[in-house]
Simulated scan of single mutants.
Amino acid sequence: MSRYSLMRVVKRVSRREWIVAVLTAILAACAPLPPAANQAADQPSHQASYPAPASGAVRPADGPLPVPPNLIALTQPAGQKRLMASAHNQSYWPLSEYFETQRNEAYCSVATSVMALNALGIRRPESTQYPDFPYFSQEDFFRSVDPQVANAARVSKEGMTLDQLGAALSAFPVEVRRFHASDLTLSQFRDLIRDTTGHSDRFALLNFRRVEIGEAGGGHWSPLAAYDAASDSALLLDVARYKYPAVWVPVTQLYAGALAVDNMSGLSRGLVIVGTRAN
């Protein structure tokens, strides 16, 4: 082989090896992180870590956490049948039309609120997201709220207590009632849920602690959309849809979750009922 031919072979091999090396580097950069690294990357600095329930919650690679065995997901046949058979499901239809996912891990109270405000059909404000269409949004929620009551920066780190959210919602043209679970008996708590979910012009916003219903996590807000007397359970439309789906929860467990003390206020959690104002 001549020297010229040999140099051409060497050049071809070098180029081929160079291409392989580049492709290998690109694929390595795109490869998923190990599970531990992913978990660390997803954990915001302000968010506390909570232990999983005693049964152990293993995160699937392609979806939310598994539903605890004491709960029934709405998407299961039994969950759907329960909704259709319930005599107290009128809150479900307007709330489901405006179902939101909280925009960050501390915005559960905000997502729950804008769902209810939009579902009530009251006059909507101008929206920065949709300039041509008035709409209540998580981005604009605090525009009408006294910053001394609550503001976006603080809520993004701490969330909102029961009394804070009640005060914040009072800035909107709605009727607001607050109920700490410690001031209610189980029967009174159940009656509030049943009576509210039987209407489409008022909604029950629940503040509870997840551990008491068998889920992983701490304090949380989500609306209740229906009540089923036969199973004595209520439908929780979880606004952390990346974590848990909508589920039916026994009322006794919801009550236990609402009785849990909020460390920020030192008071029990509970319900905020928001509805249209009487003329």
Rank of each mutant, 00 (worst) to 15 (best):
S5Y: 03
V261K: 13
S2V: 00
R3K: 07
R177T: 13
S182K: 12
S86P: 11
L117T: 01
A119M: 00
S137I: 02
Y98K: 05
G79M: 04
P51M: 08
G270A: 06
Q188D: 10
R209S: 12
Q76F: 09
L236A: 00
A216S: 14
T75D: 13
R15K: 06
P131D: 07
I273T: 07
F179P: 05
L27N: 10
S2D: 14
Q80D: 11
V174Q: 01
L186A: 11
Y244L: 09
S96V: 11
D191C: 03
S96C: 11
S156M: 03
N70R: 15
S156I: 01
H88C: 05
V251Y: 01
T112V: 00
I26P: 05
L271Q: 04
D228T: 05
P147F: 11
F142H: 14
Y244I: 00
L205E: 02
P147S: 12
K11M: 07
G198C: 02
I213L: 05
Y98W: 15
S55D: 06
D62I: 02
A29W: 09
M115S: 04
S170D: 05
N38H: 10
Y107K: 02
P69E: 12
G198N: 14
V20T: 13
Q90I: 00
A40Y: 09
L267P: 00
D228E: 11
A29M: 11
P245N: 04
